[in-house]
Design a protein around this nucleic acid. Structure first.
Lengths: 256, 256
DNA sequence: CGGGAACTTGACGCTTGTCAAGACGTGTGG
DNA sequence: CCACACGTCTTGACAAGCGTCAAGTTCCCG
């Protein structure tokens, strides 16, 4: 709300905590229950960390492929995408991130981020300095377990996407994507019926391993069957159950 | 070499360390440099853990989907595959594991293994009790960082597979698979030219998101171009560079 | 030595990528 | 305020890629 970033508007980072840390801030955060499930109880230790908040403008990256790894970031508001750039210039979308999700820990592998994280609308992040966090982990099992759980949960999530891409036809993938997004929006207090997409058809296709045209055709197919109503990026889900059953998916968009 | 398992031949687990732990054993292990890159220097703390060794027969699982998570396993000898079972009964292969690799930590996410790990030939594993390991992590930053690094590296590896499946044609995927396998075998002291596959065409297809017939056709295509020589599961790579260049891959099987 | 699993190869058709044209919506500058 | 341009989305036609089905071969294991 308050920390403005005048410099560093054009290039990625640097999100130095400096004077901008906000101790005690998490207690008031609307998405705290998503990013801090276990810490929130033991609480106060975490508040000592120098957490920097920052606004990120649409299209701006908080870190890029190859950047050194210093921070993990909690999405406070807005939407992000993680991408890796393949030779030929094509972008492979790895994930879309909603408020409350933690991103950037993939840099743990070798000290450098293997992906780029960019805002898809004007957004806000909290930057958690990893090396301070790691010191807390030394003393607090809860913190350590939470970090482990974060990474592993992401591993399992991406596996389910991989299964989806490897074993199902494109229409089913798009259905799973929509259902999953709706479910996650609902968990965050938004409507599960009305979805305002933040990404283009091309980005959805990049995520699901297909072309933007196929994404289009899938959406219009759903619309013709009466499952959804599409108007550009505004999507209304009319019949969740029908969509699930028709394509053999759970309400959260997973394979059954 | 010595610990024999008479019971528990039919069902998964249990790999209780009991009397079979082998303190000091790692010092002599041929694959220690692969599974313990950072601990091996600081060393002795790790030796105190109750590490159980066990043989696993071909086809036998060390843990199954849904099993509670107590151990991580280091592959001491042999080959394993990790799979998840989809409804319809189809098996999605997530990874193939070579000696020196650590498996089973995906159970960290929620205390239960989300996948099944089965031996593809008669093999040996070392079972590391996670909760003891976690206590070591409390005191030793090296141990903690190594666990983090293990998981994150796996995350990054699976992402590269996902990109491969999402963006490339089937022939290229098989080429990448072969090159990657050859590279990993070489790291472990085997020949990079002569590969003895432990998996069926169907399992390769399950891993790469295609049918066994397409795997076959890809292999014969490589053979006709003179890049490889195929005789069932014995594969000789005649022209690594040609294979890389033709399909735009690095020598490790990654996308360029 | 026999049976079955794994592999190979071919033919055919569905799915999806590619190319192209047009519609819609938004932002910019006159 | 309008005109224009550009990015995004939609739809169609066509061809290539790959899954499916089927038949036949090789090899391994009992």
């Amino acid at each position: 709300m308050d920390v403005q970033t005048s410099h560093a508007a054009s290039h990625a980072l640097p999100l130095v905590p400096s004077a901008n840390h906000a101790p005690g801030r998490c207690a008031l955060c609307p998405v705290r229950s998503h990013c801090l499930p276990s810490w929130s109880d033991s609480g106060t230790e975490f508040e000592r960390l120098q957490i920097g908040q920052r606004r990120v403008r649409k299209g701006q990256a908080i870190y890029r492929e190859g950047d050194p790894f210093f921070f993990m970031y909690a999405v406070r508001a807005g939407t992000f995408k993680s991408t890796v750039t393949l030779k030929e210039g094509r972008d492979q979308v790895i994930a879309f991130h909603l408020p409350g999700e933690i991103i950037g820990f993939d840099g743990l592998a070798n000290g450098h981020h293997p992906s780029t994280a960019a805002a898809m609308e004007d957004s806000e992040v909290c930057a958690v300095p990893f090396f301070e966090l790691n010191e807390s982990a030394e003393k607090y099992r809860l913190v350590r377990n939470h970090i482990n759980s974060l990474i592993t949960t992401e591993l399992v999530r991406e596996r389910s996407v991989m299964s989806l891409i490897a074993t199902t036809h494109s229409v089913k993938r798009v259905a799973a994507f929509l259902l999953n997004l709706a479910s996650r929006m609902q968990e965050r207090g938004y409507s599960a019926r009305e979805i305002q997409l933040r990404m283009t058809r091309e980005e959805i296709g990049g995520y699901l391993g297909m072309t933007l045209e196929t994404v289009c055709r899938s959406l219009t197919a759903f619309a013709k069957q009466g499952y959804i109503d599409v108007h550009r990026r505004h999507i209304e889900i009319l019949d969740t159950e029908g969509l699930c059953n028709h394509y053999g998916l759970s309400a959260k968009g997973y394979l059954e």
